[in-house]
Design a binder for these strands. Structure first.
Length: 326
DNA sequence: CATAAGCTGGTGCTTCAGGA
DNA sequence: TCCTGAAGCACCAGCTTATG
């Protein structure tokens, strides 16, 4: 109880900036059952008087019963009551607010209508205000939609199952889409449903400058060391599958960072120079497999991985591919 | 090469709807 | 009126990538 009292005084002073004084009340004339359940204090916050009731047994505290008890104590003014507790379930707090009963849970929440104060320590979620560059996870969601694979609206949880990200990461991706006005978010209860804003061509034009090249590094390995089930034809190889461009001498594949980590751990050899039987392996910051289209990586990621190459044939092939797509 | 910034998932708490 | 399960959320730690 001493600790709770100290916490109360410290918390109230910090948060309100007012002088806080708490003195135990004389409980000699109180019935035993009351003394057992509540410790009463004379509390003054910046000159405003309260009767603070420290809860001894928080577990079975009931607001209605509390009021009934307090009405039996002549020295207590019901409208000056303030409950002090270490923690209270949210539904209890809700009820107290409904009834207009003041309460303080040090470091967590205070509700003091007499002072016009209502504060929760938990900060409102810090959403990004703008997004200059989409996170990899957001990019995956966007491309998935651009590929026509997201019908209607979805929740972050559904996205997390489909794209093998955590629900948390998908929730953040939805934040990014929302502030970018690329998607609309509708809340129904605790659910967030995301729907995209119509026209694919317009959205692609708007988002691609903020998208990143998925390739974080390129290594050369022997093609027979390739993890077939996780590797997807990428780069010029993928472009040659979609356009009239010739196949490159050296095939290119894409894998996710996680797949590469596993390969690296298992000790795959990196070949420093071009050699027969080798291939180029692009390590992507997301999993190419989830967005795969036909035999190769998705055309959007492919475009992002090849844009800016100063090769006229590639530029033309890219244009050709994007033209067909949108 | 060291430090900062960015990305992601785990953990535990809060909120909400619905049912007893 | 109270409880419960599911979803959403913040905080944090661990790791990767960018920068001087």
């Amino acid at each position: 109880m001493d600790q709770l009292l100290k916490n109360l005084v410290r918390y109230l002073s910090e948060v309100t900036g007012l002088a806080v004084i708490a003195k135990p009340m004389n409980s000699d004339n109180l019935p035993y059952f009351l003394v057992r359940q509540y410790a009463l204090y004379q509390l003054t916050i910046g000159g405003t008087p309260f009767t603070a009731a420290f809860l001894q047994e928080e577990a079975d505290f009931k607001p209605a019963q509390f009021l009934k008890h307090m009405r039996k104590v002549p020295s207590v003014k019901v409208n000056e009551l303030c409950i002090v507790a270490q923690s209270l379930p949210t539904y209890v707090r809700k009820r107290l607010i409904e009834k207009g009963i003041s309460f303080v849970i040090p470091s967590v929440q205070m509700y003091l209508p007499a002072l016009g104060m209502d504060l929760r320590s938990r900060a409102v979620r810090q959403k990004p205000l703008t997004v200059d560059r989409f996170s990899p996870a957001t990019q995956v969601v966007l491309i998935c939609w651009l590929l026509g694979r997201i019908e209607g609206d979805v929740t972050p949880l559904e996205l997390s199952k489909r794209l093998e990200y955590s629900a948390m990461t998908m929730s953040r991706a939805v934040d990014e889409l929302e502030v970018s006005k690329v998607a609309y978010v509708e809340r129904s209860g605790r659910e967030r449903r995301v729907s995209f804003a119509g026209d694919r061509q317009a959205i692609w034009a708007e988002v691609w400058p903020r998208m990143r090249n998925p390739v974080s590094r390129v290594v050369r390995i022997f093609e027979n060391k390739l993890p077939r089930e996780n590797a997807v034809p990428a780069g010029i190889t993928a472009l040659s599958l979609r356009t009239l461009l010739n196949e490159p001498v050296c095939p290119e594949y894409a894998i996710s960072r996680d797949t590469w980590k596993a390969m690296d751990k298992a000790g795959v050899d990196i070949i420093p120079v071009e050699e027969p039987g080798t291939c180029l392996l692009q390590v992507w910051c997301y999993a190419p497999k989830h967005l795969q289209v036909d035999e190769g990586v998705d055309p959007f990621s492919l475009f992002l991985s090849l844009q800016g190459t100063n090769d006229e044939r590639i530029e033309m092939a890219l244009e050709d591919m994007m033209g067909q797509l949108i």
